Every structure is written in C-alpha cells, then in structure tokens.
Simulated assay, not measured.
Amino acid sequence: MDKDNFKSLLKKANFNKRTFSEHLGLKYQSVNSWGNNGRSVPYWVESWLNLYIDNHKCKQIKEMLKNTGVCE
C-alpha cells in the first residue's frame, strides 16, 4: 500500500496517524515513518483498516435498525 492510500484509509476510518498509533498501541514515530524514505506501510495495515471501516458501518446499520424496532 502506498502513502496516499494509507492516508485515504486513515481518513475513512476517522483516524490520523497519532490516533491510529494510540488505538493499536504502536509508537507514533513508527507509524509516521510509513511511506516515507522508502519505508513501506506494513502488509497488514490495509486489511486492518478496511475491516475497521466495514465494522463501523455495520455498527451504524445495526443501531439504525435497533432504533426502528426492527432488530432488538
């Protein structure tokens, strides 16, 4: 994953590099260096962020259904 895709996924997940690193218990300096000076973004980050985004969407749908009384 390239630097621009990483930034785009962070934005979709409502993270910045600092909040992402805190959420995962990673050092900010490590996350901040991804995509810079030849350092690639780790292979697992793209799938993790996509799953996080999808999970958030599912939670929103579940809450909407719960509020309508359809799903209790």
Rank of each mutant, 00 (worst) to 15 (best):
K27L: 04
W34C: 01
D2K: 11
K66R: 12
L51A: 14
S30W: 03
Y28T: 14
G69E: 11
E72T: 14
N37C: 12
V70Y: 13
L49R: 06
V41L: 05
L10R: 01
R39A: 10
N36F: 07
L26A: 02
W48Q: 01
E46F: 08
F20L: 01
N37P: 00
D2G: 03
G25M: 07
R18H: 10
N50I: 11
L10M: 02
V31P: 02
V70F: 10
K66Y: 13
K7V: 12
I53D: 01
E72Q: 08
Q60P: 00
K62W: 06
F6C: 11
D4W: 05
V45Q: 02
G69S: 07
N14A: 10
P42I: 07
F20K: 04
P42W: 09
E22F: 07
N36P: 01
G69A: 11
K27H: 05
N5F: 09
S33M: 03
E63N: 05
L49S: 11
K59G: 05
D54S: 13
S40H: 08
G25Q: 11
N50V: 06
Q60M: 02
S33E: 01
S47I: 13
K27F: 07
K12P: 05
E46D: 11
L26G: 06
K59N: 09
L51D: 15
K3C: 04
E63S: 12
K12E: 14
N37F: 11
M1C: 01
R39N: 05
V31W: 00
D4T: 10
G69L: 14
S47Y: 15
S30M: 04
G35V: 03
S30Q: 07
F15V: 02
R18M: 15
Y43R: 05
L49D: 03
D54H: 07
G38I: 14
E22R: 08
K59V: 06
G38N: 15
L51H: 11
N36D: 03
V41I: 15
L51M: 06
F20Q: 00
H23S: 14
S47R: 07
W34N: 07
H23E: 08
L65R: 15
T68C: 09
L49N: 08
H23F: 01
R18E: 10
Y28H: 15
M1Y: 05
D4E: 12
F15R: 00
L49C: 00
L10V: 09
W34V: 01
K17D: 01
I61A: 03
N67H: 07
F20N: 02
N16S: 03
N55M: 09
S8H: 12
P42A: 10
C58H: 12
L9C: 14
S33A: 13
Q60T: 08
N36Q: 11
E72N: 13
E46V: 07
G38P: 12
G35K: 00
L65V: 07
N14V: 04
D4Y: 13
G25P: 11
G38Q: 13
V31S: 03
F15G: 02
A13V: 05
F6K: 04
N50G: 09
N32G: 04
S47D: 15
Y43S: 09
Q29K: 13
K57M: 06
W34Y: 06
N37A: 09
E63K: 12
V70H: 13
